[in-house]
């Protein structure tokens, strides 16, 4: 591992579409991730969280503003910035280990060293027993563990995570969060974690950014002063509960705003079903 990077997004804006269809997804957004920091980005569905992450990954160019890693503008995807997707993204034609070795192979690293790195990481994530299986044979949680391991294998300086546990049931999700923290403690690289799950954001992060409804901006920034290493029983502590109610209130406001905005401004047949589902529980 070659250290952790400093991520900076300044006055970032990104528009979708052209002409009269043009729509601002994100506007005047600024955030940073300090080297070695675990930062979450949370907000109502459709607020542009993933847009920010995609720009950092190098898949999208900002319409305005700066997207930098260690002061250098991002020009395209790079193994320096590992990405974990919400959808399962393992290559079905490669075994678990071949998946993990892929990034190293692209770097031109020899087979023996590739195998050693892959096996070490797989065993840290508890999936070494499945190294020779195809992804098809794995459960959702295992697939995502392999996905994280694959992103870490190239020794990235930042890890970008786009709701990686969104498709998992709550039991598996809790286990995955602990595994992620263990893996992160071992490498201490910078992480930007996108989620809409409040508990998840608190449990994992050093700092949490809350986004507004579309067009997305930063609404609030909260430090998470809970000590590490964190265990699941943390969820009952006073500090955790206080942060949770604070975050709930912030996100509820935005979800209602998003809904009101949609109901008022968009014809019924153009509304996104997922946005309606995003209204926070009472």
């Amino acid at each position: 591992m070659n250290g952790a990077a400093h991520v900076a997004v300044r006055d970032f804006a990104l528009d979708y579409g052209t002409g009269s269809q043009r729509m601002a997804a994100v506007q005047d957004l600024s955030l940073e991730v300090k080297p070695g920091e675990f930062v979450s980005l949370i907000g109502p569905s459709g607020c542009g969280k993933s847009t920010v992450l995609n720009a950092l990954a190098g898949f999208m160019q900002p319409t305005r503003g700066l997207v930098q890693v260690d002061g250098a503008e991002i020009r395209g995807p790079s193994p320096d910035r590992g990405m974990v997707f919400q959808q399962y993204s393992l290559f079905p034609w490669m075994t678990v280990r071949q998946n993990v070795e892929f990034g190293l192979k692209m770097k031109g690293i020899g087979a023996t060293e590739r195998q050693r790195t892959a096996r070490t990481l797989l065993s840290l994530a508890g999936v070494l027993a499945f190294e020779n299986r195809y992804p098809d044979a794995l459960s959702g949680g295992m697939k995502q563990r392999v996905g994280i391991v694959r992103a870490l294998a190239t020794g990235p300086r930042v890890l970008l995570m786009d709701e990686p546990f969104g498709a998992l049931d709550s039991q598996t999700r809790a286990i995955m969060q602990s595994i992620l923290l263990e893996l992160w403690e071992a490498s201490r690289i910078s992480v930007l974690f996108v989620t809409h799950d409040i508990d998840e954001a608190i449990f994992l992060s050093d700092r949490i950014y809350v986004m507004t409804a579309r067009p997305g901006r930063i609404k609030a920034e909260l430090a998470v002063p809970l000590e590490r290493p964190r265990t699941p029983d943390l969820a009952g502590s006073a500090g955790f509960l206080q942060l949770r109610s604070q975050l709930r209130e912030l996100i509820r406001e935005e979800s209602l705003k998003a809904m009101g905005h949609e109901v008022g401004a968009v014809p019924a047949d153009q509304r996104f079903g997922q946005d309606l589902a995003a209204v926070a529980p009472p």
Partner: peptide, 24 residues
């Protein structure tokens, strides 16, 4: 998503063809 994942892992055009598009 598979193409994006491969690009994030450092695959360039030739590698994309060989390792991703062809098996896919």
């Amino acid at each position: 998503i598979l193409v994006r994942a491969a690009r994030c892992l450092g695959a360039r055009e030739a590698a994309l063809f060989r390792e991703i598009y062809l098996p896919a």
